[in-house]
């Protein structure tokens, strides 16, 4: 499992001239579940988009399993074993649940795809009932489950979650949190961006706190919980 360590070294990203990340470094070890915390606009989503290749870093290196991701296409990065479950689900709304899951396995060409779809259905039984419905017609919770299921279909070693519980009813927050914990226990590394600190504190082992594109704090999740800067980042959260 040593081949799936994610390492960001001094990564900077700009939108035009506006700096979004200013030299951040972080590490997700094999099998770790790491939370990335911070206020809105701190650079959390930008970090995930840089890792999955949707954004090009201006400088710095992003290493995964030894290789540098900075020049790879998103498709090549998926093939290396990183799946990104993006903010706002980002499903294919006109496709069925089943088709969305099949698209998740786009990079694969093996005979076990059907078995993996069954595994997703086992994780989220509601998706099986809805498998022939258009993804656009699902409820918010079901859409999130589908987004997670679709990310799993590439058989990732590392999962990037961007606000997976946003806008969900409390019982669904618990269900999604439980699912993320379960995937982590199966050995998948997770980098979790979450506004809901209760979720992050419940499942993460370590965490990083972003402020204005810089990492201002890192450490075991218990110490972060007590820190003033974390409380400031989540006023009312």
């Amino acid at each position: 499992m040593s081949g799936c360590e994610l390492l960001l070294e001094d990564v900077s990203v700009c939108y035009g001239r506006v700096p979004a990340l200013q030299g951040i470094s972080l590490r997700v070890g094999p099998g770790e579940l790491i939370a990335l915390l911070g206020a809105n606009g701190a650079g959390k989503t930008t970090t995930l988009r840089a890792i999955s290749g949707l954004l090009r870093p201006r400088s710095g290196r992003i290493r995964f399993g030894g290789g540098d991701l900075a020049r790879l296409s998103p498709a090549a990065i998926v093939r290396l074993g990183i799946a990104h479950c993006p903010e706002g689900r980002q499903l294919f709304p006109e496709m069925t649940v089943l088709e969305n899951l099949e698209m998740g396995a786009f990079t694969r060409d093996d005979p076990e795809i059907a078995a993996d779809i069954e595994r997703v259905y086992a994780l989220f039984p509601r998706l099986r009932e809805r498998r022939h419905q258009r993804a656009g017609n699902l409820s918010g919770g079901e859409q999130q489950m589908l987004a997670i299921g679709r990310a799993l279909m590439s058989r990732p070693k590392l999962l990037l979650f961007d606000e997976p519980t946003m806008g969900l009813a409390p019982y669904l927050v618990d269900e999604v949190t439980e699912a993320i914990g379960q995937l982590h226990r199966q050995g998948i590394s997770v980098l979790l961006v979450e506004q809901n600190v209760h979720v992050a504190f419940a499942v993460a082992e370590r965490g990083y706190v972003l402020e204005n594109g810089r990492i201002v704090l890192e450490g075991p999740i218990e110490t972060l919980r007590e820190d003033e800067r974390v409380k400031r980042a989540y006023v009312g959260g």
Partner: peptide, 19 residues
């Protein structure tokens, strides 16, 4: 299907590995 996927959501298509 990749064509349809890209037309429905370009970022998502990139993230599942569509070139």
């Amino acid at each position: 299907k990749a064509l349809r996927a890209m037309s429905q959501n370009r970022d998502a298509a990139a993230l599942v590995g569509v070139e």
